[in-house]
Design a protein around this nucleic acid. Sequence first.
DNA 1: AGTATTTCCTAATGGTATTTGGTTGTCCAT
DNA 2: ATGGACAACCAAATACCATTAGGAAATACT
Lengths: 235, 235
Amino acid sequence: MEKVAAPVDRRARRRRETIEEALDLAVELMAEQGVAGLSLGEIARRMGIRPPSLYVYFPSKMALYDALFNRGAAGVLQAMQEAHHAIADLPTLAERLTAAGRALARWCLANPGYSQLLFWRPVPGFQPSPEAYAPALGLIEFSRSWFGRLQSEGLFPADADIDLLLRDWVILTAGVVSQQLANAPDETVDTGRFTSALPSLAAMFAREHGAPPAPPRRRKSPVSTTVAPSSGRSR
Amino acid sequence: MEKVAAPVDRRARRRRETIEEALDLAVELMAEQGVAGLSLGEIARRMGIRPPSLYVYFPSKMALYDALFNRGAAGVLQAMQEAHHAIADLPTLAERLTAAGRALARWCLANPGYSQLLFWRPVPGFQPSPEAYAPALGLIEFSRSWFGRLQSEGLFPADADIDLLLRDWVILTAGVVSQQLANAPDETVDTGRFTSALPSLAAMFAREHGAPPAPPRRRKSPVSTTVAPSSGRSR
DNA sequence: AGTATTTCCTAATGGTATTTGGTTGTCCAT
DNA sequence: ATGGACAACCAAATACCATTAGGAAATACT
């Protein structure tokens, strides 16, 4: 009774590995064929097992979608958290918004399968379970606290309604990502015909909702400060 | 040989009616279950015929999707054209943009089945045929000419790039509709948590890209004119 | 009336998700 | 090491799906 150092079964480990393998293949398939193109049979085929054997690991296809939703949401959340280390150093509001939008767009274009599942509702009866939805809530909370920090730093007016700002910003980024994914999913973030609108959209949003840039001890604010290097400025 | 007055067969007429009936039922089904929930069997069941009989009217399910895409695109186009009769009378740029956005959102929320098919790409191998896509191009062209008219009227600066403006505006409206459809398709345009952002978004867009409102015969443009009741403006 | 065409059917094929029941192998305790 | 518990897998079967093939009935045209 001294087996000490193997408390967690090797079997449980192998099981988790198998589940991960199935999910990886599912993501691959979704990226190839879209969410609706996902088939348990094809996953099983690529794993070298028969379709019914997948039911050892997932009680239904919906459960697989649920796991995918969870993984996807966790993936975006992590990508955004990592991106924000660099973003926090950027000086202006417009630059930070642009960088955040680009980070999101980059992840979405790199993971179109996940993105469809997360942002559209392509599966008829599918509603993510609370556990699967948790990281999505985490992303919302993360974004909200980010906006809160921006407000604390004085980049948003102190009296602004953070939730309204966030709603509008989410709409903007959702529009960019949605259009890019639907119309030209193979373009890159840099050359994408919609993602390339991010700098000018962020600049617009910053001009509309940002706080005046730290009044530099003069009476009149300068006419032209250093804003983002955007192209399509009209005014 | 005097049958004169029946040039177009009654059979052709009945055929068209049957096709219309099938498409109507398909739209109904898409609205209920989403695009992926569409099944030829269910359409046939509701028509009172057997599934294979549908192949008399559509060579494949893709052809049915194609017809639906065509119908949907024609529907939005018509809705937007009709809406623009009233829109053209509105005084300010922001009001016109808001009204246009609301008209689009209204149609999309009323026709969620079509909307999914048109704006997302939920069907794995489906690419609309040129004929089916024609009215979608018509909508783009209609929007572009609308923006051109706005520019001629002086609501957009004369040197503005209409295509860039349109791209950004499309992104905005796509974001609103996409978020509303994905997260709360049952809310109305007026109470929708995303569609209700349209006025403020349109105002932001108008302030960013609109031409100054009819320079009142003074040398310097006034510092603070009567703009929309927004809170945080930076410049 | 006869003929061609349209419309609908039944039957069948191969795909899907899923359930059932059985077989093999792996692990653990005795 | 042997027996029992459990995991992983499979074959077979069900029910749905899109689709094809071939035939029967209705419809229109000559």
